[in-house]
Design a binder for these strands. Structure first.
Lengths: 150, 150
DNA sequence: GTCCATGCAAACTGTTTGCACGCGC
DNA sequence: GCGCGTGCAAACAGTTTGCATGGAC
């Protein structure tokens, strides 16, 4: 598993340690190819190994983010979601009705980032593109409930 | 002032009221063409009219968002920023070093949204494009501090 | 006068932190 | 065994809510 090696190497290089908990959190994120929130990661971690605290989950997520193995997303809700970095970047649409998330790709984003970096001299390290609205089913429901009101 | 009329009309239509506080919050957002956080809006509101509570600021922001006069942004930090909706959509870059924000336009985003809407049948109501990284000055500082470590 | 909106304080959610113990190296 | 990482609980920041009073219409 490549990313565990990377984790191990990075930790060693900075005098830090590869612990059971850190391995578990990374595994969970790699296996479930979804954006999980801290609470969910914590639950799954406890299922694998009784004692993992929520604080450690947060500390580990910060660490993995720093190393670049994990990305944090804010999908409109009050809390954050995390996912293992994948080879191809992708973006998110969230349905405001049912919370369903659709992932999509958009190569144009890299071009926008490149152009902005060039124009402003900034170095762009992360890009987020986030849409929200209504999925087909929820569009239908909203139409119905509007009719009910008349 | 167009948007106050819109606010007034929308409120009337749904049996709600245009209060001093609601007018103040909308004015603040219109005048300062920036993304303010709730705390800042609250401070400015108090300056104009002694008694405006933070709870009301939040309730009003939710209302203005619902009506479509105000947008909420999550610029990487833990708290939300709000700004009056402008005719032309625009997006944000935040410097991770100093917090500086650069606004930019990117017409390509609408095209991406259109294409996704068509392909998935979703109705997209809001779009966020958010970059983070380092501005020129902070890139320099990071280079320096890295050299210091060697 | 009616009923929505407000102020206040308390509750709540997600996240961070201080400290003593535990464990990777 | 040294020192980083952990668990626990308390602290914290941002936001929301219940309730009695105030104010728009």
């Amino acid at each position: 598993m490549l990313s565990e090696e990377r984790l191990n190497a990075t930790l060693h290089a900075s005098g830090r340690r590869l612990t059971r908990q850190r391995r578990i959190v990374l595994e969970i994120l790699k296996e479930s190819q979804e954006h999980l929130d801290a609470e969910t990661i914590h639950d799954q971690a406890k299922a694998r190994d009784s004692q993992v605290s929520l604080a450690t989950v947060y500390r580990t997520l910060a660490l993995l983010k720093e190393i670049g193995l994990v990305e944090e997303h804010r999908l409109g809700e009050g809390h954050a979601h995390f996912e293992a970095v994948q080879s191809s970047p992708h973006y998110h649409f969230t349905c405001l009705g049912c919370g369903r998330v659709i992932e999509f790709d958009a190569p144009q984003v890299m071009e926008v980032a490149r152009a902005l970096g060039e124009r402003e001299g900034v170095e762009i390290t992360t890009t987020h593109l986030f849409f929200s609205g209504y999925c087909p089913q929820c569009q239908q429901e909203r139409r119905n409930s509007r009719n009910d009101q008349l």
